[in-house]
Simulated assay, not measured.
Amino acid sequence: MSEVSQEGTGRSAAGDAERATQLVARLDLTNLNDDCSEADVAGLIKRAETPVGPVAAICIWPRFVAFARRELSPHIRVATVVNFPHGGDDVEATLDETRQAIGDGADEIDLVIAYERVAEDPGFVEAQVRTIKAHCGGRPLKAILETGKLYDEATIERAALAALSGGADFLKTSTGKVEINATPASARILLEAIARDGRGVGFKPAGGIKTFEDADAYMTLAETICGTDYPTAERFRLGASGVLADLLAVAEGRERQSGKGGY
């Protein structure tokens, strides 16, 4: 079962098609599989130019950034991950990853925070985010909080506030590598923290987004909490790969399959 469900959207088929097209333009098409190859990234690049327009970005392992930036259209961004997926606390190693990724042409950095230290030492996470942000060369930094490993609302909020205080440009729920990834409950906590912060920080739910209804529900939640003008492609992203087929089916008015997908 998908982690987000709705009893219909209340829109017409044409309205759903327009919404699905908007969601495609906010998609970080992702392959962070352990066995990902250059050929897989080439396939991702091909899929990124869809019949209803390009996705916002592709999100890939750092080792493929240089290849992707050479092959990908300039209007599609290359996002990559650092300190991924385990969120360790070796800041120097993460800095090395970040510098290499920027040098290879990454447009966005998705950093896994040291989430196991959040409960007792949120100041470390704040400093970690601030340090990596300072070496991104002005590129957006998405802080991955791994909310499914934080267990309670207070700790999720503590992680969000630490990342915001460190200057994160986005709050991202998850790596997609653990049992519990994006959920409506964790999304609400992050969005409410973003709304209180007031700087227009972005939001990216990731993992478990498999259907149009899943994606639409997260965008609707963002509109409800942060305002209808909030979820632009610069401030709202979906971390997913398998959802693209369903979004395209809705956008093009085609028959849909049974919402399945990875990440």
Rank of each mutant, 00 (worst) to 15 (best):
G138V: 10
I180T: 15
G105V: 07
D121L: 09
G261F: 05
R254G: 05
A206R: 02
A187K: 05
Q6H: 14
G123T: 09
E97R: 01
K142Y: 03
E49T: 14
T50W: 04
A160C: 15
T211E: 03
R117Y: 12
V91H: 05
V250L: 06
F170Y: 15
I102F: 05
V52T: 08
A119H: 14
L248M: 09
V201C: 11
G148M: 05
I156Q: 05
L161G: 00
V178K: 11
P85Y: 09
D110C: 14
D110I: 07
K46W: 03
Q257I: 03
A215G: 11
G88Y: 03
T173F: 04
V82D: 00
S258D: 12
A20Q: 10
V24L: 11
L161A: 01
A215R: 05
K210M: 11
V52L: 00
P54A: 15
L29F: 12
G259V: 08
F67K: 06
E255N: 10
Q257P: 00
Q6D: 13
S165P: 00
A222D: 02
G10T: 13
D16V: 10
E157T: 12
V201S: 03
I58P: 10
T98Q: 05
L244G: 05
A187E: 00
K177V: 01
A39G: 12
L171Y: 02
S174L: 04
C136M: 08
E234R: 15
Q6N: 14
T224S: 15
L32G: 10
K142G: 01
L238D: 03
D40K: 06
R139T: 04
V91W: 03
K172Q: 03
A39R: 14
P205Y: 09
S37P: 04
K142M: 04
F64S: 01
E18S: 13
L221W: 12
K210Q: 11
L72F: 08
H86T: 12
T183A: 09
A101W: 02
I58H: 08
D35M: 04
P51Y: 01
G242V: 10
L27C: 10
E255K: 13
V118G: 05
A14L: 15
E179F: 06
L164C: 01
